[in-house]
Amino acid sequence: MFSPGELITALLLLSAIVVFAAGTLALLRLPDPLCRLHALTKIDNLGFGLLAAGLALIQPTWIDGLKLLAIWTLILCSSTTNGYLIAHHCVWESRR
């Protein structure tokens, strides 16, 4: 009753949920900011990537799917920079 595309979507979305759950757990449990940052950026990149890929497959037109992937690229850029900035700030704070 599901087309193969829908099955792949479901799989991707489910794995996105698992990644997000793991990331959230890590955010709560890991000891210091740098480690948490590690978890946070992983969620952003991988989780959103899975989510975007899953949703892109079920869009009515391919251009919408492309938009989702473009959003993911933007998230990649910003989370990279964010991670760098927060880490930078942490190092700066600890040196002070």
């Binding site: 850029c77 910003s78 990279t80 920079t81 760098y84 900035l85 930078h88």
Partner: peptide, 9 residues
Amino acid sequence: HAGALADTL
């Protein structure tokens, strides 16, 4: 200044 990476972003 936030750094070179931020400038790129």
